[in-house]
Design a binder for these strands. Structure first.
Lengths: 194, 194
DNA sequence: GTCTATAAGTTGATAGAC
DNA sequence: GTCTATCAACTTATAGAC
């Protein structure tokens, strides 16, 4: 019997997800230039021709992944702002969430965003996404609030934010190279701002 | 008049230096896979054929650069150990030195080592260099000393070392993307261990 | 020592059969 | 929807002229 339209749609969605999932892992480890379409296809267990049936180019896959990564990164900040308590408590909550995600597959997302902004071969659209949704800029109000409440040191909030995310990205990088490397707790990370 | 043997040697050395210098910059920004020999040649203002006259392969250039980077990274640790004062003072001195180097061209070296260990296309020799001369491992004795003297928190020294270098690498990465990004001072960095 | 031309191999992307 | 075959462009590396 022929497949229904809905079944086809589900199959299409599943394939797309499958491709995106393995692509995340490979892009994060090898970067945009180092990743071959054939490798994505091989790991997703389908022909490379089929990859082009779902995505029109390697760049399109990469762009979609960065878009998702930036989106979920920003989401954590919004959730943090919605938490009860002082600004420092919100930062603590956010840091805990990020540390948790570094232990799972989500750590790849931080590397993706990193490689997107360091590589000069990425399409302009990607850089635009990152600029508009920069975690650094989104976190600055929270940091300034914590400074006003006397919990963070009175230093340039931009400097504090970049330092904070430098540490996060560095830790994500470590986790890629050395899966079981020990991670600091949230308090240790927040010390750089106190 | 014909060039003397010594003049030729000097020319050869200068060319090698020239190639290595521009290669550092490009490798750091684009990684091993994203860097083309032709681009190195173009930026060094010579034909790509000539690059192969001085180096037998792209990997050889990369390997030599990583070797130099690891060497100078280890050198700072040795110099720090030779400084007078308590372990925490030595760590402060080292951090100041590293921050200073992040402001200059040397920041590229940290990125090189990072990309060397994340990319899976690098030759085994490179990974071996990094394992043997790992800054993390070399710094652990100093951290333990500072712990014994009560200046650093009593946490897993491996965790503290990885966190410290995660922050350094993250900052180096920031500097590449955003040349004038503000850097924390040595005290702020050392707070993660106090 | 330096360059241009070229060989050999790889990769992104497409076309067409099933 | 999926695969295999194939094209076109590019990249590493070499050979040979000057």
């Amino acid at each position: 019997m022929p497949k229904t339209e809905q079944q086809n749609q589900e199959l299409r969605d599943a394939r797309r997800e499958q491709i995106l999932r393995v692509a995340t892992s490979i892009f994060a480890r090898k970067g945009m230039a180092g990743t071959k379409i054939s490798e994505i296809a091989k790991e997703a267990k389908l022909s490379h021709g089929l990859v082009y049936h779902y995505f029109s180019s390697k760049e399109e896959i990469f762009t979609e992944l960065v878009r998702n990564a930036a989106s979920s990164s920003i989401n954590v900040i919004h959730l943090a702002n919605a938490q009860p308590g002082k600004a420092t408590d919100k930062m603590y909550w956010m840091t805990t969430q990020i540390l948790q995600s570094l232990k799972g597959e989500n750590r790849l997302l931080y590397l993706l965003m990193m490689q997107a902004s360091t590589s000069e071969t990425v399409p302009a659209e990607v850089l635009d996404i990152l600029k508009k949704h920069s975690p650094v800029m989104q976190t600055i109000p929270l940091i300034m609030e914590a400074q006003a409440e006397g919990d963070f040191q009175k230093a340039d909030p931009i400097m504090l934010a970049t330092t904070y995310y430098a540490l996060i990205q560095g830790l994500a990088m470590n986790k890629i190279q050395w899966e079981d490397c020990p991670l600091p707790d949230a308090d240790t990370i927040l010390k750089v701002m106190r």
